[in-house]
Design a protein around this nucleic acid. Structure first.
Length: 830
RNA sequence: GCCGGGGUGGUGAAACUGGUAGACACAAAGGACUUAAAAUCCUUCGGUCGCAAGAUCAUGGCGGUUCGAUUCCGCCCCCCGGCACCA
C-alpha cells in the first residue's frame, strides 16, 4: 500500500489545502527554518541533495506540530556560471536553461514530499529580485563601502573572471578547480574589512552555531595583535625608514637582518642606482610570474638577495642587512618583517641557507644558555629574555607588553592590529549576473543609477563568451551607451556584473516579504520573521556565504533597515553523502539518484532511510542495503493498524490510574517512547535514534500478548488506539504520507499536521520493575529484577544469594559495597 | 606543522552527566506458513573455552585515575575536515 499513488494523493491534498503556507503576523510563535537555497544546476536530485532537504522538512513539520507558525521557504540561487557555460555550449539562453532546471528540481522536491511555502518562491535572476540586489549595491556605494581600485586580483583562466579571496580554495577556483592566476585589474570591492572587528566579536553571539564553523570564521578574519616598528636606513639622505610588523616584539634583540617583499616600493628605491638594482628587478619579475600558491606554499624553498642597504635596530642600534625575499608578501602587514632566525622557523631556514647569524634571546626555561650553533630549529615557545638589555630575566610573555610600551614611549613604534581578512572583490566579467548599477561619465565620474531606474536589466545577448577580461555586456552598444543621469552627457554603463554571493547574502530577508514592489522588504515583516531560527546547509559554506550574509546583516542593521545584527540564530551543518569515498556530485559522475528509489519504495521509505542511516551531521557513505529495513518497518505499522482497526475504531480514552498492572507497564513503555523520540529530535536532530525508538515500540506491540480477560477490555483497546495514534504523530515528520493515510484510516478527517505531537505523562515514564546489574569488583556477576524503590537491604539480600556472587566473594574480605538505588550493586572484595 | 572531528561486531550504527558495551537496523544462518517462490512471522548471530551453567578476552595502541572507563587524564598510531611562509 506504500506507493507513489499514496505520495501523490497527499502531496496534492497538502497543496490544495495550502497546509504549509506561512502566515504573516500570526499570533502563534514564529519559527523560521531555512535551507541554503540551491543553484538550479539541472541535475536530477541525488541523495546528497535529498538528505539536506529532508532534514529541513522534518524540522519544519515537527515545529508545525509543536504549534509554531512555521516559515519554510525555497528559492533559487540562479545567477552563475554554469548557466552561461551551458548557454555557450548548447546555444540556449541562460535564463531559459535556468527556468527549465528550476521546473525539474521543483518537481523532484515535491516528489519526496518536502513541504515548502511555494507562494514565497524567489529566483535571484528575476528582475524583481535583482532589482533589490542592485539597490543594496547602491546603498553600499552611498555609504562608501563599495569602491573601485586597481589591484592584483585572483583570475580564473577557465571562468574568465576575477574572484574573491574566499573563492580561491587551495589555490584553485572553488567552482571549476582550475589553478588561479593573478591579474592586475580595476575592480569593485566591498569594504568588508570595516566590519572585521564586529564580524569577529559577534561570533560570541552565535551560541547555536557549530564550534567548527566559528573557528573557521575566526581564522579567516585572522586578527593579530602586534607592534609596528621603524628601522632607519643607514646613510639614507632621504631619511628612509622600513616599517615592520611583528607579533613577537620580545624577540627584537634577536634580529639579525630585515626581510622585505621584492615588490615593496622601498626595496626598489633603496637598490636604485646600485649594483643590486638589476638582480632585484629580475627577482621581483620572477616572483610576479609565479602563481600566488607556489609563492606562498611553505614547501617552496626560501630565496632572497641582499639589496645593498642596512637598517638600524631601534632597540639596540645594531646594524643589520636588508634582504628581499620570496617569503614575505606585500599584502599583509607592512610588506616587511624583522628576521629573528633563533625564534622563527622561516627566518631560521633562510639564515641557514644564506649563512646569516642566529642570536638567541629567548631561553628555554629548562636549558641554560644554549648556544645558537646548537639550534636545529627555531625556538618559538615561551621562555626567559636573554641578551635583551634591560629586559633580561623577564618572562617573554610579559616582555611583549613592556617592550610594546617602550616602543610607543620612545616613538620608535606603535601597537598595531592586523587582520587577514581582505576586502571582498565583487565584480565579475560575466554575463549571467546582476549588472552593477553605475554609469561612467567623463564629466561626473562614477554616477550611481538612480533608484527609479532600477532594475538595470540584463539585455539579451547573442554571444556569451567573455573577451579579454571584459563581460560580454561590453559588446552591447544599446546597453553600454547611455546618457549620464547627472549631466545628461554621454555616459557608459558598467559592464561587470555582481558576484552571485551578493544575491545570496540577503535572500533570507526577501523570503519574509517576497512580493514587495516598493522595497527590498518591509521592516514589520522582518521584525516578525527574522532572525532565522534554524539555518541548515553544507559545511562548504562555512566561510564564503555565511561570512558575507553576516556582513550584509550588520550593514543593514547600521542603516536601521533591520533590527538585528546576526541573521542566523542556530546553524546546523549536515554531513555530506559520499559515494566511493567522494562527495556525490554530478561532475564526478558518482551520484545516486533519488528518483528510482522513490519509484520503487515511495517517498517515505527513502526519507526514512536517509534519516535512519546515520545522525544527520555525520557524513555517510551511500549504501542502499539497509533501505529494506525502513520499508518493512512502515509495513509493520500499516499491518498493525489495519489488523487492530476493528478493536480500536471506537476505543475511548486511556485512564492511566485505572490500568491493571500489566497494561500500566504497557502505558509506561508508550510514554518512555514519546519522551525518547522527542528528546532525540530536540537534542541535535538525532533522527536515527528517534526512529529506532519507534521501531522498538512497534516491536513491543507485536510481542505484547494481553491476558484472556484483557483482550477485549476497553482499557486495552484504548491503549492500542492511543499507541497507534501516537506512533503516527511522532513518525509524521519523518514519513508524512503513510502517516496521513493511516491517520485517515483511524477515522480522522483533518490532516495529521494540524495536530500536536503527543506529550508524555511524567508520572508514567519510570518502569516499575528494574533490572539491576550485580557486580563484584566491577565485574558483572548477575542481574536481579526488583521493583523501583526497593531498599538497599532488600536488594543486597536478593543479590547476595546469587550463586555467581557467592562464588566470587567466597574466601575474600568485603571491603565496601557500592549501591546505586535502582541502578547498580557492586561488592568490593580483597 | 597548527586547529577541529573521529577510530566500537561481517555492515550502518547505539550507549544523553563514568554504572549491564553493541539498542535499532542490514547482511548471514536456521525454522514456520506455502505445491513452490515472494511476502510475512519466529529463533540465533563479537571472539575464545565449555554439553551447559558459566568463565574469559574485547570499544585504534600503551599507561594512569576509579569499586567500576567507549566515556576522565597522559603519551603514541591511523582516518576525515579546515588553515598554513599572515610575520
Amino acid at each position: 500500500m506504500i506507493s507513489n499513488t499514496l505520495d501523490k494523493k497527499w502531496q496534492e491534498l497538502w497543496a490544495a489545502r495550502e497546509l504549509f503556507q506561512a502566515d504573516d503576523y500570526s499570533k502563534k510563535i514564529k519559527y523560521y527554518v531555512l535551507m541554503m537555497f540551491p543553484y538550479p544546476s539541472g541535475s536530477w536530485l541525488h541523495m546528497g541533495h535529498c538528505k539536506n532537504y529532508i532534514i529541513g522538512d522534518v524540522i519544519s513539520r515537527y515545529k508545525k506540530m509543536q504549534g509554531f507558525n512555521v516559515l519554510h521557504p525555497m528559492g533559487w540561487d540562479a545567477f552563475g556560471l554554469p548557466a552561461e557555460n551551458a548557454a555557450i555550449k548548447n546555444n540556449i539562453h541562460p535564463g531559459e536553461w535556468t527556468d527549465k532546471n528550476i521546473e525539474v528540481m521543483k518537481k523532484q522536491l515535491k516528489k519526496i514530499g518536502i513541504c515548502y511555502d511555494w507562494s514565497r518562491e524567489i529566483t535571484t535572476c528575476a528582475p524583481d529580485y535583482y532589482k533589490w540586489s542592485q539597490w543594496l549595491f547602491l546603498k553600499f556605494l552611498e555609504k562608501g563601502l563599495a569602491y573601485k581600485k586597481t589591484k592584483k586580483a585572483n583570475w580564473c583562466p577557465k571562468c574568465l573572471t576575477v574572484m574573491a579571496n574566499e573563492e580561491v580554495v587551495d589555490g584553485v577556483c572553488w567552482r571549476c578547480k582550475t589553478e588561479v592566476a593573478q591579474k592586475e585589474l580595476e575592480q569593485w570591492f566591498f569594504k568588508i574589512t570595516d566590519y572585521s572587528d564586529r564580524l569577529l566579536d559577534d561570533i560570541k553571539k552565535l551560541k547555536g552555531w557549530p564550534e567548527k564553523v566559528k573557528i573557521m570564521q575566526e581564522n579567516w578574519i585572522g586578527k593579530s595583535y602586534g607592534v609596528e616598528l621603524d628601522f632607519k636606513i643607514e646613510n639614507s639622505p632621504a631619511g628612509e625608514k622600513i616599517s615592520v610588523y611583528t607579533t613577537r616584539v620580545d624577540t627584537i634583540f634577536g634580529v639579525t637582518y630585515l626581510v622585505i617583499a621584492p615588490e615593496h616600493p622601498l626595496a626598489q628605491k633603496l637598490a636604485r642606482g646600485t649594483k643590486y638594482e638589476a638582480p632585484l628587478k629580475e627577482f621581483a619579475a620572477k616572483l610576479k610570474r609565479q602563481s600566488e600558491i607556489s609563492r606562498t606554499s611553505d614547501l617552496t624553498e626560501k630565496e632572497g638577495l641582499f639589496i645593498g642597504a642596512y637598517a638600524i635596530n631601534p632597540f639596540n642600534g645594531e646594524r643589520v642587512p636588508v634582504y628581499a625575499v620570496n617569503y614575505v608578501i606585500m599584502e599583509y602587514g607592512t610588506g616587511a618583517v624583522m628576521a629573528v632566525p633563533a625564534h622563527d622557523q622561516r627566518d631560521f631556514d633562510f639564515a641557514k641557507k644564506y649563512n646569516l647569524p642566529v642570536k638567541v634571546v629567548i631561553q628555554k626555561p629548562d636549558n641554560n644558555g644554549r648556544p645558537a650553533a646548537d639550534l636545529t630549529e627555531a625556538y618559538i615557545s615561551e621562555g626567559i629574555q636573554v641578551n635583551s638589555g634591560e629586559f633580561d630575566g623577564k618572562k617573554n610573555t610579559e616582555a611583549i607588553a613592556l617592550m610594546s610600551e617602550y616602543a610607543e614611549k620612545n616613538k620608535i613604534g606603535k601597537k598595531t592590529i592586523n587582520f587577514k581578512l581582505r576586502d571582498w572583490l565583487i565584480s565579475r566579467q560575466r554575463y549571467w549576473g546582476a549588472p552593477i548599477p553605475v554609469i561612467y561619465c567623463d564629466k561626473c565620474g562614477i554616477v550611481p543609477v538612480p533608484e527609479k531606474d532600477l532594475p538595470v536589466k540584463l539585455p539579451f545577448v547573442a554571444d556569451f563568451q567573455p573577451k579579454g577580461g571584459v563581460s560580454p555586456l561590453a559588446a552591447i552598444k544599446e546597453f553600454v551607451e547611455v546618457p549620464c543621469p547627472k549631466c545628461g552627457g554621454a555616459g557608459k554603463r558598467e559592464t561587470d556584473t555582481m558576484n552571485t554571493f551578493i544575491c545570496s547574502s540577503w535572500y533570507f530577508l526577501r523570503f519574509c516579504d517576497p512580493k514587495n514592489d516598493n522595497a527590498a522588504f518591509d521592516i514589520e515583516k522582518i521584525k516578525y520573521w527574522m532572525p532565522v531560527d534554524q539555518y541548515v546547509g553544507g559545511i562548504e559554506h562555512a566561510i564564503l556565504h555565511l561570512l558575507y550574509a553576516r556582513f550584509f546583516t550588520k550593514f543593514l542593521f547600521d542603516l536601521k533597515l533591520i533590527n538585528f545584527d546576526e541573521p542566523f540564530v542556530n546553524l546546523f551543518t549536515q554531513g555530506m553523502v559520499l559515494k566511493d569515498g567522494q562527495v556525490m556530485s554530478k561532475s564526478k559522475g558518482n551520484t545516486v539518484e533519488a528518483d528510482p528509489l522513490i519509484e520503487k519504495y515511495g517517498a517515505d521509505t527513502v526519507r526514512g532511510f536517509v534519516l535512519f542511516a546515520a545522525p544527520p551531521e555525520k557524513e555517510m557513505e551511500w549504501n542502499d542495503k539497509g533501505i529494506e529495513g525502513i520499508w518493512r518497518f512502515l509495513g509493520r505499522i500499516e499491518r498493525f493498524i489495519d489488523n487492530t482497526l476493528p478493536l480500536i475504531k471506537d476505543a475511548g480514552p486511556v485512564v492511566p490510574k485505572q490500568l491493571p498492572k500489566e497494561l500500566k507497564a504497557f502505558y509506561i513503555t508508550l510514554n518512555k517512547t514519546i519522551k525518547k523520540v522527542k528528546e532525540d529530535v530536540e537534542r541535535e536532530f538525532h533522527f536515527n535514534t528517534a526512529i529506532a525508538a519507534l521501531m522498538e515500540f512497534v516491536n513491543f506491540l507485536y510481542a505484547f500478548e494481553p491476558s484472556e480477560e484483557q483482550k477485549n477490555s476497553k482499557e486495552y483497546r484504548a491503549l492500542l488506539r492511543l499507541s497507534s495514534e501516537d506512533i503516527l504523530l511522532l513518525l509524521a515528520p519523518f514519513t508524512p504520507h503513510i502517516c496521513e493515510e493511516l491517520w485517515e484510516r483511524l477515522g480522522h478527517k483533518e490532516s495529521i499536521f494540524l495536530n500536536r505531537l503527543p506529550e508524555f505523562d511524567p508520572a508514567f515514564v519510570i518502569a516499575e520493575e528494574k533490572e539491576v546489574p550485580v557486580q563484584v569488583n566491577g565485574k558483572l556477576r548477575g542481574r536481579i529484577i526488583i521493583s523501583a524503590g526497593t531498599s538497599k537491604e532488600e536488594a543486597l539480600a536478593r543479590a547476595g544469594i546469587l550463586p555467581t556472587v557467592i562464588a566470587a566473594i567466597a574466601g575474600k574480605k568485603v571491603v565496601k559495597i557500592i549501591y546505586v538505588q535502582d541502578k547498580l550493586i557492586n561488592w568490593v572484595v580483597l
